[in-house]
Write a protein that binds this DNA or RNA. Structure first.
Length: 848
DNA sequence: TAGGTGCATATTTTT
DNA sequence: TATGCACCTA
């Protein structure tokens, strides 16, 4: 029974229900109708595979590299290969280690293997790099002199800790920002360079600071019995390299290692795999699958080198190329191929399909992000009836872009879900609650302890915190341990000095709450119950309830959801401890949680970043924000290496589409408040004209500029631009940094004089036409706004419990109302179905 | 110590 | 835009 947890307004707006993009999970349609007569297992596993896929599945012996282009059926190859290994008796299920990057991919692989092999699939290790390593570390914690209850710090925890380090080590955090230091340290860890190694290789003044920060940070992590994300891999490698017996144990166990998305591995992960595979006589069988063109995590230390040099690293390796695409139509594929072909130093692939040309890619140039969103909604409405909502996905480069899209979707009443974005587990109240749990599981977790020390307010300010921290430091103990000395006459270390009686009392009360919860946890209480005890005991929920900040109401609901997650977890894993729950929460992002609700209904349109979209596919895909500065991202424009990564990202985006692909851009986009004019993405120029059906090829600003630019000897950023609706000051500073439209400029200059004249004339005509259209649009919008206002007057006083009539859905009961004025949104229940509608836009009226 | 005000600052991407 | 942080005052 999956009761829908109550969701707040904010939540629904940016709902990050997870993922269940599974509805449209990749499945390589087999060229041969499936479901033939039951045959021997082997041929069942090979049926419908093309020769290359088949070769990869049956390959035996040496290391295998499968270069799998987008949509070439690589997951199928991987799962069938594993099943084949088991069915032919070449491997025991327990000898298999399959590594993926995301929990979602791991889950999907396990499901497919269960379908192929039955319950024996449960004996395999199918997991992400991180959870496999945590599993090893927990089992071998003694060799590391760590307690098995170690905490896993996410990036927010790490940042807090680094802030502490900067303060305590007197690092000037304006010169070296904590974030920057963490970035460096992360890179170092991914290269398996520990603080001592690094200290030996210092090059300049700045490195001295980095070295000090790294050492301080690492010491504090250790003292807190905590590991950050990068430590998880690095520490595992260190463990294996320094303990031959442990290494041998795992080498013997994992005779078959398979790595998905190999192009995303970093150096540490590469070494981990190499160690586990071993070498020489007793070497295990290694299969890696990847596609250098889909490497989009270089910023996190991933290196294409690993896949490019696989044949050198493993001299007797065999390589198999999967080039037939089973996903997309030829037009989509050609567009994607044309873009990626612009990347330098790339090993060319020839992806092909036999599924026909299909529809052209649809293009649209919008005037603003709102206009872009409006186009999206119009197209969606045109698609409704022909497609289920869940067949449709909308991608963007950065999460911030979802906002405009979401607003318009809400207005139109189109159901959608956002994957990613403000993550559930990053919310303040969730982090607070988890910090309470963390402290119960691991009292030495200083970051968590200090986080909740005065949350909710219990009169413990900086002074009290310093007093405890000083005591801890002086006696070489953790902050949490130091709390036990407060007010304790028997402590051999004596009292904690510098606390007022009031503060002392507050600390003792706080400590008692934790002790009670810890006893509960140790006597086997469910994580959800421990959570209850803490939230009630500390008065956390109470404080939120009392608050009149509307956000706090949502926070209470989020905590209720966390409670539900914990209860769910217990149900799925009856033996699970509090520590297991915390590990789950740390490693399983919400992107891969919550199974899909009703498969029967139309589902939701899925919104996500391009990064999140990797590995997925949808019949209909919209890729938005194709502007230089948005996609490719601003920060990549100056650097060819980063630009190449952006191009791979674009390639990933385009290749997600099966049948229909839409690409859009907005010529003006507001970034943190201020509107910026952005030129077309260079990636758009790279798509051959003939593949795209441009519904609108120029923005109003383009048109204005073109018509007036005939007066100027060369196109420039001045004059015409200031005529736009945008503040000139902003524009100049923005556009000056961009090498805007240079490709188009170059193209114009290449024309003969007559052609140029013709072009100018044609464009002038077009300009007039579009200017008129723009005028018309403006008028319509004004009208709509007027209408909206009138309606709002009538609906402004709507409150929960009222009845409203919707043109399409009929009568409904208002359940909740948020926002004010034009942004007022109501949650209305129609006939059992709950919808969120913008009062100003949706066709709603009061009952007569 | 808490709470308010104002200013600065940020936006890639994620295990 | 929205959030956090620093600083100030009560």
């Amino acid at each position: 029974m999956t009761t829908e947890p109550p969701l707040s307004a904010l939540d629904r707006l940016r709902q990050r229900v997870a993922a269940q993009t599974a509805a449209s999970q990749p499945q390589a349609p087999s060229p041969v109708p499936s479901g033939g007569p039951p045959e021997a297992g082997e041929s069942r596993l090979l049926a419908g595979l093309n020769p290359q896929q088949r070769a990869a599945v049956v390959h035996g012996g040496g290391p295998l590299l499968v270069i799998a282009g987008a949509g070439s059926g690589k997951t199928r190859v991987l799962t069938h290969r594993i099943a084949h290994l088991v069915e032919t008796g070449r491997a025991q299920p327990g000898e298999i280690l399959a590594i993926t990057f995301t929990n979602k991919a791991a889950k999907e692989m396990r499901e497919r293997l269960s379908a192929l092999l039955g319950p024996v699939a449960n004996r395999m290790w199918i997991s992400t790099f991180h959870s496999a390593c945590v599993r090893i570390l927990r089992a071998e914690h003694e060799a590391l002199a760590m307690r098995s209850t170690f905490t896993i710090y996410d990036s927010a925890d790490s940042l807090r800790l680094m802030n502490q380090v900067c303060r305590e080590e007197a690092i000037d955090s304006r010169v070296s920002t904590p974030k920057g230091l963490l970035r460096r340290i992360s890179d170092l860890k991914n290269e398996l360079i520990d603080p001592e190694d690094f200290a030996r290789s210092i090059n300049d003044e700045a490195d001295v600071t980095v070295a000090a920060a790294y050492r301080g940070y690492q010491n504090r992590l250790r003292a807190a019995n905590a590991l950050d994300f990068d430590d998880i891999i690095m520490t595992t490698v260190g463990l294996l390299q320094s303990h031959p017996a442990i290494l041998e144990h795992y080498q013997r166990r994992f005779r078959h290692i398979l790595v998905d998305e190999y192009q995303d591995t970093n150096h540490a992960q590469y070494v981990l795999i190499r160690e586990l595979t071993g070498r020489g006589e007793s070497m295990g069988e290694l299969t890696v699958v990847g596609d250098a063109d889909q490497s989009i995590y270089a910023f996190r230390g991933a290196t294409i080198r690993n896949i490019e040099s696989f044949e050198d690293d493993y001299p007797n390796a065999e390589s198999i190329l999967l080039e037939q695409n089973y996903r997309s139509t030829q037009n989509i594929l050609s567009a994607a191929n044309a873009v990626i072909a612009n990347n330098p130093n790339r090993r060319a692939k020839r992806l092909w399909t036999d599924s026909g040309a299909g529809d052209k890619v649809v293009g649209y140039v919008a005037d603003s992000e709102h206009d872009e969103a409006r186009f999206l909604v119009e197209e969606l409405q045109a698609l409704s009836g022909k497609r289920r909502w869940s067949d449709i996905a909308v991608f963007y480069r950065t999460n911030a872009q979802s906002r405009a899209l979401e607003e318009m979707l809400i207005r139109a009443g189109i159901p959608y879900k956002v994957i990613g974005g403000t993550r559930f587990y990053e919310r303040k109240e969730i982090k607070d609650a988890l910090a309470y749990l963390q402290v119960v599981a691991n009292p030495d977790d200083t970051v968590a302890m200090r986080r909740i020390f005065n949350t909710p307010r219990r009169g413990l300010g900086a002074k009290a915190e310093d007093a405890v921290a000083f005591h801890a430091q002086r006696h070489g103990m953790s902050f949490g341990a130091a709390l036990d000395d407060v007010g304790s006459a028997e402590s051999p270390r004596g009292q904690v000095n510098g606390l007022t009686p009031r503060a002392e009392k507050a600390i003792i009360d706080f400590r008692t709450i934790l002790h009670v919860a810890r006893e509960k946890a140790e006597s086997g209480s469910a994580p959800a119950d421990v959570l209850d005890s803490l939230m009630a005991g500390s008065g956390y929920t109470e404080e939120l309830r009392r608050s009149d900040d509307p956000q706090d109401e949502a926070r209470v609901e989020n905590l209720a959801e966390l409670h539900a997650v914990a209860a769910d977890f217990k149900k799925m894993n009856p033996d699970a401890t509090l520590g297991d729950f915390l590990e789950h929460v740390a490693l399983v992002s919400d992107t891969d949680q919550l199974p899909d609700g009703d498969v029967a209904d139309e589902g939701d349109v899925t919104l996500m970043t391009v990064h999140t979209a990797k590995g997925l596919e949808f019949p209909v895909v919209f890729v938005t924000g194709f502007e230089d500065g948005t996609f490719p991202h601003m920060r990549s424009l100056a650097d060819p290496v980063e630009l190449a990564e952006e191009r791979r990202l674009a390639y990933v985006a385009l290749t997600r589409a099966r049948e229909n692909l839409y690409i859009t851009r907005a010529s003006v986009r507001s970034q943190w408040g201020a509107p910026q004019e952005l030129p077309a993405s260079r990636f758009l120029d790279e798509i051959p004209e003939g593949l795209v059906d441009w519904r609108r090829a120029h923005s109003s600003a383009d048109v204005l500029r073109r018509s007036s630019s005939t007066r100027y000897s060369k196109p420039s950023f001045d004059g015409a631009r200031t005529g736009g609706s945008v503040k000139p000051g902003r524009l100049d500073s923005g556009s000056g940094r961009l090498d805007g439209g240079s490709a188009k400029k170059a193209a114009a200059e290449a024309l003969s004089p007559e052609d140029r004249e013709k072009l100018a004339a044609a464009e002038a005509a077009k300009a007039a036409e579009q200017a008129a259209a723009a005028e018309e649009l403006k008028r319509k919008r004004a009208e709509a706004a007027q209408e909206e206002e009138e309606k709002l007057g009538a609906l402004a006083s709507v409150k929960p419990g009222d009845t409203l009539i919707h043109r399409k859905f009929g009568a409904g009961t208002v359940r909740a109302v948020e926002g004010r004025g034009a942004n007022m949104v109501a949650t209305i229940e129609f006939d059992g179905k709950s919808k969120r509608l913008m009062l100003g836009m949706a066709p709603l009226s009061l009952p007569k």
